[in-house]
Design a protein around this nucleic acid. Structure first.
Lengths: 344, 344
DNA sequence: CTGAAAGCGCTTACAG
DNA sequence: CTGAAAGCGCTTACAG
């Protein structure tokens, strides 16, 4: 069954393709009668404009691309959900690609999206990404780009972030105020900005509260898994028997830690207090419930798309684009794992 | 900066657009010298074929669409990951849409994909989907369609499923063999085929092992959340004090149940045994670890794409398509939550 | 109010 | 081995 075209409708009604096209797009210079006729016919035949032709004519695809490090991940899938929901509202479709934390893949995927001529790109960078020439390609092609969460400060584009440093500072400060004297940190890999920032927040909270900063209390994680939470908790207990607080880079790892501490009979929060990061729903549900930093994934996706959408519109109208960095608020959620001991 | 076109290259080299096009596509009837020249120039200018024009000419977009009920969900995001990975290998990009379990949204999204003229569609149906005329639209448009996991048996297309009934049968049988005398079931909503099938498997396992089927032991869940697991565990303990086993539709709910049983001091597996469904990674990590049915999400995504890809190729070659239903094996994973009591 | 014509950037059957 | 020409299905500036 060949799809119906404008030409088909034009022939049936004995009018020109031009008029059919204009009638369907409700141009003011077409008579009401013709419009009605055209619309009825289009309806009856179930006419659908050929998107390929429209794309070619208008040079836009009404499609954007998103590259994230990992799809099976609570935070990123929340962001994805926010993006897709918002995009659909504005008539945009979303192509999803995942870099698996690899620079090489990320680079290749940018090429794929650029070749596809998407109207815009949304990205959160891979841990393996150390230089950013591949992002320059996006900028050179004048494709609007918005980075979120795992960003590169040097890249000239709009960004949506949280203040990782401040959030980590608050988490650590909260541990101090709950009475912790020796606070460890399970941090992410060395490269990504957010694990650097969280580490810096941790460190400055210690120093500003007159506490020692001891590098041996900082453990560098790799894949940020539950298993790493278990493993490094064991290490921590071996290395520092008197540790009484941990600030952990992400909830999944923190839940691994809780599970290990529970197993070893270390009482949380009495022996050791824990604060995680991300507010994964499991953290409100584990025993003990986990204090954490609420990181608004869905909201971040929504805002990132909105920024991108605005840039796409501006580009179309040839208005010069000014880049914006939106910082979303985070929130320290205090639960059982970090409450101060009751005074006996 | 205007993108480079074939015409640009042709003009620079003083040859025709035809020859440039053929040279780049390595047609045999172009001289080696011309090919080399064209390629070098294309390389230097960073030529990228205009995908819109190629789409229009070839009537294919090298893009497929996927509609799933929910992105933020371990099983579906695993499927999505499998699809995206496999599609990328074959040069296809994936548009992601989510129905939020709503028939209306699902219908609208099918229209979006059809209007976009994707080369194929992959779907897992919403719980709210009761009739399937919207799927007929896909078939009428002759767009290849593969359903996975939440399918409709009556729809004429390829499918990737697990044998929910058999898996549920095995889960329940395992509870019986572990010594349970009174086994409850937390099932999913009434409509989706997979919650029906799992219920039927539960029921037939009981009957075939000479046990009573008592409808009051079957609880119908709605959103299959952790909270529902907590809630219905409370109900269950109120209604049936002597229950000693539960087969639960999905791990998240089962983990809610475990958490509530733990809280009430009901010993798992000694007082009550539990088997879940899906093998979410948390189930291997909770205390006690949860027995469950391993449901291969990533694999399902891979297979679904492969089927779709084959149909896309066949359609292109005008080979008539025969629909296939692939049933992926599941696996009962026995952990602490269901082991038989030791004989004292 | 209507329509002929050009053009978006490719691909490919055909001629030479 | 090379190229002129047609055509994919639209949109839109322009003429009448």
């Amino acid at each position: 069954m060949k799809p119906i075209t404008l030409k088909d409708i034009a022939e049936i009604l004995g009018i020109s393709v031009t008029t059919v096209s204009k009638a369907l797009k409700d141009y003011p210079d077409v008579s009401k009668k013709t419009k009605r006729l055209v619309r009825e016919t289009a309806e009856t035949l179930n006419y659908k404009p050929n998107a390929f032709a429209v794309n070619l004519r208008t040079s836009e695809s009404k499609t954007i691309g998103i590259i994230i490090p990992e799809v099976v991940h609570h935070f990123f899938s929340s962001v994805l959900k926010g993006i897709v929901a918002q995009a659909e509202k504005k008539g945009y479709l979303v192509i999803i690609l995942q870099s698996n934390e690899s620079y090489e893949l990320e680079k290749k995927q940018i090429d794929l999206l650029l070749n596809k001529r998407v109207d815009g790109i949304l990205m959160s960078l891979a841990n393996g990404t150390i230089h950013f020439d591949h992002l320059d390609e996006i900028l050179i092609s004048e494709t609007p780009l918005v980075l979120f969460d795992k960003i590169a400060k040097v890249v000239q584009c709009s960004k949506v972030i949280i203040n990782d440093r401040k959030a980590a500072y608050n988490a650590t400060k909260h541990l101090i105020e709950s009475g912790c004297k020796k606070i460890a940190h399970f941090r992410g890999p060395l490269l990504p900005q957010n694990s650097i920032d969280r580490f810096l927040g941790y460190k400055s909270a210690l120093l500003e509260h007159g506490m020692n900063y001891d590098p041996s209390l900082v453990y560098i994680l790799n894949d940020m898994s539950f298993e790493e939470g278990v493993h490094f908790s064991k290490e921590l207990l071996k290395d520092h028997k008197d540790v009484d607080g941990v600030f952990i880079n992400t909830d999944l790892v923190a839940i691994g830690a809780i599970s290990e501490f529970n197993k070893q009979g270390i009482a949380i929060p009495n022996d050791i207090k824990i604060v995680g990061f991300s507010n994964w729903f499991m953290s409100s549900v584990i025993t003990p419930t986990l204090s954490t930093i609420d990181q608004p994934g869905y909201e971040m996706g929504k805002v990132a798309f909105k920024l991108l959408y605005k840039e796409i519109k501006q580009k179309k109208k040839k208005i010069p684009v000014t880049f914006k960095t939106v910082e979303l608020p985070t929130n320290l959620v205090i639960r059982e794992s970090s409450i101060a001991e009751k005074i006996n």
